[in-house]
Amino acid sequence: MDVITELIEFISKYYSYYINGTLATLQISFFGVVFGTILGIILSLLRMSKTKIINIISTAYIELVRGTPLILQVYLVYYGLPMVLPMPDSRMFLGTFAVVLNSSAYIAEIIRAGIQSIDGGQMEAARSLGMGYGVSMQFIIIPQALKNILPALGNEFVTLVKESAIISVIAIPDLMYNADTLRGITYKPFTPLIIAGIIYFTITFTLSKILGAIEGRLSASDTSSES
């Protein structure tokens, strides 16, 4: 009874479950990050709008999403949404859609905090030079805000990779779902789950290292040009 040989045997038999699961998890996370960020930027701008009704709606959305469990939102989108709106008949689409809706609310709050952390004098200086609100946001406020929020944003991306495991409840064959399937097939409680855990950790660890490197480069751009 050698643990190592048993492990090798297990992997060589079932590796395709892990590869497919990892690809699905990466795919969901990728779309979650990209569309979550786009929607998050829009939401944060709506939330800071001076028009009261827009402000109330976006604030309500953000608070509701942040105040309810992701698993509930996944069920609502998967079972509920197709009954009221025409939706593509695809688990993958609906699962990813739920993740995007969820992450956009968190990202919106991170971006809002970042924008509001910029000194009001920056906007005033930009406006006094004749730059409009949009131009000032694009070239003066958002670049500075983005640098400030990169750690929080990176954290959110890492969280998203882990949280995406929830969508296994609607039988999307992601890494979590496949590991659980293998647990059922093999009656082994540890091996399938630990391998999944190692893969999750490898993804998130690599991701935070990459984001850390980007952060380092951005802050270097401030100090590198000596006078």
């Binding site: 920056q122 200086a125 500075q144």
Partner: peptide, 10 residues
């Protein structure tokens, strides 16, 4: 011109 200069730091 402002009291706090308000140059764009980035």
């Amino acid at each position: 011109v402002f009291q706090q200069f308000n140059l764009f730091p980035h």
